[in-house]
Amino acid sequence: MTDPRMRTAKFGLGDVVRHRIYPFRGIVFDVDPIFDNTEEWWLAIPEEVRPRKDQPFYHLLAENAETEYVAYVSEQNLVPDTSGEALRHAGIAEVFERDATGIYRIRDRHPN
């Protein structure tokens, strides 16, 4: 039986996104159909901007002007990044390869 709270994710693995409010962008490397982090994490977000739990949440290899990090972001706070600029996050090369058109694809993990 399908959980009625689940819906199709708007973004997929390898999609480059940016935060709707905060100045960072990143690449999706995992998706949770609904919130799957700690209650403590969720409550630490100021109530006036706290996202709903009943939506996809994305694990991002994220970066801003100063640093690179892993972010966990609700779908309501993400928009597509259409800049076409390559990401610099050091973890990307381990998971993705960028093709000639600028699209990030999951690396083939099969041994040669």
Rank of each mutant, 00 (worst) to 15 (best):
D108L: 01
H110W: 06
Y58P: 03
V49W: 05
R109W: 09
N77Y: 13
R107W: 02
A9E: 04
I103D: 14
N77V: 01
R107I: 14
S83T: 08
A100Q: 06
E66A: 12
R105P: 02
L13E: 05
T67R: 13
D3S: 05
D36R: 10
F57P: 07
L87F: 11
D15K: 01
L61T: 02
L87H: 11
P46Y: 10
I103E: 15
D99V: 05
R107D: 09
P80N: 06
G14R: 04
E75H: 01
R25D: 06
G84A: 13
L78A: 09
R7G: 11
K10W: 00
W42S: 01
R107E: 06
E68N: 09
D81C: 08
I92T: 03
A100V: 07
I27Q: 02
Y72R: 00
L13P: 03
E94F: 11
G84M: 02
P80T: 10
E40M: 00
V49F: 05
P23A: 01
R18K: 15
T82I: 07
P4Q: 12
D3R: 09
R5F: 02
L60F: 11
W41T: 09
G12F: 05
W42R: 08
A93C: 04
D30H: 11
F24Q: 05
L13M: 06
R105F: 10
F35R: 04
E48W: 15
N77G: 05
T101K: 13
R5N: 13
Y69I: 01
E68C: 14
E97V: 13
A44V: 07
F29Q: 09
G26E: 03
Q55R: 10
I21G: 06
E48Q: 11
A100T: 03
R20S: 12
H89F: 13
A44S: 15
S83Y: 03
D108Q: 07
E63C: 01
A90Y: 15
E40I: 08
R109Y: 03
E85N: 10
L43Q: 13
E68L: 03
I21R: 15
P46D: 15
I27G: 01
E75F: 04
S74W: 06
T101L: 14
A90M: 11
Y22S: 15
E48S: 04
A93F: 08
G84R: 02
F11Q: 00
L61D: 01
R25H: 10
M6A: 13
R105D: 12
Q55M: 04
E66I: 02
M1Y: 11
L61M: 14
I92S: 03
D81V: 04
A9N: 10
G91A: 12
S74C: 12
D81S: 08
W42A: 00
